[in-house]
Design a protein around this nucleic acid. Structure first.
Length: 279
DNA sequence: CACCAGGTATACG
DNA sequence: CGTATACATGGT
């Protein structure tokens, strides 16, 4: 338990409900959030604000070593989101509106395995439904995380590869059960080496991921962006499609942002899913 | 209680 | 090649 100073955009609420991590919880009513990644859990809250967009002092539940070695990377704190906001400002009225609404967002660096399974599950599910299915999967198949307040780690490839169809079905995976099993078996057998894929270029990584049954363009892009830090990857789902068609006159607004396109996509996704207006 | 959800595989023409 | 359709199940 110690405090850290974060000198950049960092809005826990926006990060938590931005559709990239589904195991986050609001712990109390004073702004404490719990994030779970792999076999680690972290609680944190803002103590003091020193700037806009959530910059300031935060109390974190881990030690300095774990913060510097893991969570600093997880929260992508080496990147200046303020700089990205400033650089992109003024290029598009719509994008400006999205970024303004999502100020404080960050794109998290999560684990490829967890992203692969989570986004296979995500297809044709609402965000609350994704969260409950992933939760059920972790409770059924994950190890308890000591001192985490009863949280479970994300299950290993081995455990999911050996799980029965009935056990997986009990986690509300529906027709995705064979997808999850196949993915787990490919990883467990070594047919798909997630660690090795990190050395591939963006296009090769994108193609390799789609060898998995149930992984198409959208899920592959999510894994590239959220699991491998490929910030040029733009997952296009119904919300982004809607933004392109209804707010951008059918013209893709992301390509112009090059290696930051995936980050801009996240602001747009946040805007589209949080704006008060029935489409 | 219909309707839709951070899509994809498969079957057509 | 492009377009149409089935898919399981939970939130709202």
């Amino acid at each position: 338990m110690h405090t850290v100073l974060i000198d950049d955009d960092f809005d826990l609420s926006k990060i938590a409900w931005s559709g990239q991590c589904f195991r986050t919880r609001a712990i109390d009513d004073i702004g404490t959030y719990r994030f779970i990644a792999g076999d680690k859990a972290l609680e944190l809250r803002q103590l003091q604000s020193t700037g806009e967009c959530g910059a300031g002092e935060y109390e974190v539940s881990c030690d300095t070593e774990e913060w510097d070695g893991f969570w600093y990377v997880y929260f992508d704190l080496a990147r200046s989101y303020r700089a990205i906001r400033e650089e992109t400002c003024g290029k598009s009225e719509f994008i400006d509106r999205c970024i303004n609404s999502g100020k404080g967002l960050r794109v998290l660096n999560q684990q490829p395995w967890e992203m692969l399974i989570t986004f296979i599950i995500s297809q044709r599910k609402s965000m609350p439904a994704i969260a409950s299915a992933v939760d059920a999967l972790c409770k059924h198949f994950g190890k308890q995380i000591p001192g985490s307040g009863g949280e479970y780690a994300f299950p290993t490839p081995k455990v999911l590869a050996e799980a029965s169809e009935e056990e997986l079905k009990a986690c509300s995976l529906g027709y995705r059960v064979p997808y999850v099993r196949d993915a787990a078996q490919m990883v467990e057998s070594g047919e798909l080496q997630l660690q090795e894929l990190a050395s591939l270029d963006d296009d090769a990584l994108f193609d390799e991921l789609q060898r998995v049954h149930g992984v198409g363009k959208k899920v592959a892009n999510c894994v590239c962006l959220f699991g491998y830090g490929r910030c040029s990857a733009v997952p296009v789902d119904v919300w982004i499609e809607r933004a392109i068609n209804e707010d951008c006159a059918g013209v893709d607004p992301f390509a112009q942002f090059g290696s930051d396109a995936g980050i801009i996509q996240q602001y747009v996704f946040y805007y589209m899913t949080h704006r008060k207006q029935p489409q």
